[in-house]
């Protein structure tokens, strides 16, 4: 006898409702009692605390350009305060470069802020020790660092900026503090193992990435847009015409845009993924989806952006992720209509 576990309604939908709807949380051990997190700020130290919004600021980068911290909104951020003389910080900087590179693929931005040193000292140090994609900023006066310092962290420090020296924070895409570690000299680990472990838990794997080349189309003309969907190795997404009604089909769609008509997406042929004795229609690797773009003859000339979204459900051979979506923009330049007689 054969039992097919195929629900008439999407299984993930009903379970998600149960799982996310205020399920009682277990009383977890305080953060600072967990391995590697002994330096976590404690509630009695005062604000800012995990769960609170990080202070906003703007600081100059190595070229002297002001970088508004709000420009990192939408990404997970690792924020680290440093000084070139600090032996803890100096032992960590190469490992922070490695963390920055490793998590960039998951769109995590790493920002290092030098506290209370002259610009020449910092620039000289950073040019040798800080590598992209890490963003190097300079807080010459310590004014920004002191706003991050909870008032009762290191209460014996008169200079409040120094209280967050060597501190590491994880901020979520809304700018909310999710982890706030002060240095813990008794368990010093320059490799950021605990921070990496928290990132692994907090930041979703980038299973699907999307890109599309900028388009230049004359008013009254048409173009084919190729949307490239990259599915991470080991994963597949359900095809546009899935094999079961409760599977989420892959869909590429665009928001309405005046005088621009986007045709139906044309998907490639599906691959076949075998689960037991069933073949499931999926996409893997690089998936190219074509859409036709018709620009009206009266469309305004100039630059605009088309807002696209890819909806998908990704799975491996053994498990499936929550249905998700990725938004992307396609820069579109509308040029003067060609002089057609």
């Amino acid at each position: 006898m054969k039992i097919q576990v195929l629900a008439a309604i999407p299984l993930w939908a009903c379970c998600a409702g149960v799982a996310c709807g205020g399920a009682p949380t277990q009383a977890a051990a305080p953060t600072w009692q967990r391995p590697g997190l002994g330096g976590a700020v404690r509630p009695e130290m005062g604000s800012p605390q995990p769960g609170e919004q990080a202070p906003d600021f703007a600081l100059p980068d190595l070229d002297g350009r002001m970088v508004p911290f709000a420009s990192t909104r939408g990404s997970w951020v690792v924020l680290h305060f440093t000084a070139t003389w600090c032996p803890f910080c100096d032992s960590e900087v190469n490992h922070l470069n490695a963390l920055s590179a490793a998590f960039a693929a998951r769109s995590v931005k790493t920002v290092i802020v030098d506290v209370e040193e002259d610009a020449a000292t910092w620039r000289s140090y950073a040019s040798q020790h800080v590598t992209p994609p890490m963003i190097a900023l300079h807080d010459a006066s310590g004014a920004v660092a002191s706003r991050f310092a909870p008032p009762r962290a290191q209460p014996s420090f008169d200079d409040r900026a120094q209280a967050v020296l060597d501190a590491t924070l994880i901020l979520d895409p809304h700018g909310t503090i999710r982890l706030f570690l002060l240095p813990d000299s008794a368990h010093f680990d320059p490799t950021f193992r605990a921070v990496r472990a928290e990132l692994e838990k907090l930041v979703p794997q980038a299973v699907v990435a999307v890109r599309a080349a900028p388009q230049a189309v004359a008013a009254g003309a048409s173009a084919d847009v190729a949307v490239i969907v990259e599915v991470a190795p080991g994963y597949h997404v359900m095809a546009d015409r899935p094999s079961a009604p409760n599977y989420v089909p892959t869909r590429v769609e665009f928001s309405a845009e005046p005088d621009v008509t986007v045709g139906n997406a044309r998907y490639p042929a599906a691959s076949s993924f075998r689960v037991g004795d069933r073949a499931i229609a999926t996409f893997e690797g690089t998936v190219q989806v074509q859409l036709r773009l018709d620009v009206g003859k009266d469309a305004a000339v100039g630059d605009r952006r088309l807002h696209g979204v890819v909806r998908y459900q990704a799975c491996t051979a053994s498990l499936c992720l929550f249905p998700s979506q990725r938004t992307f923009d396609v820069p579109l330049e509308i040029k003067e209509a060609k002089d057609v007689p």
């Binding site: 054969k2 039992i3 097919q4 576990v5 195929l6 629900a7 299984l11 993930w12 009903c14 379970c15 998600a16 799982a19 079961a244 409760n246 599977y247 689960v275 037991g276 004795d277 069933r278 499931i280 459900q313 799975c315 053994s318 498990l319 499936c320 992720l321 929550f322």
Partner: peptide, 13 residues
Amino acid sequence: RVSLYPLFAAALA
């Protein structure tokens, strides 16, 4: 023979 594939989707949710 039980196909668990859709159940994994649920579990992961």
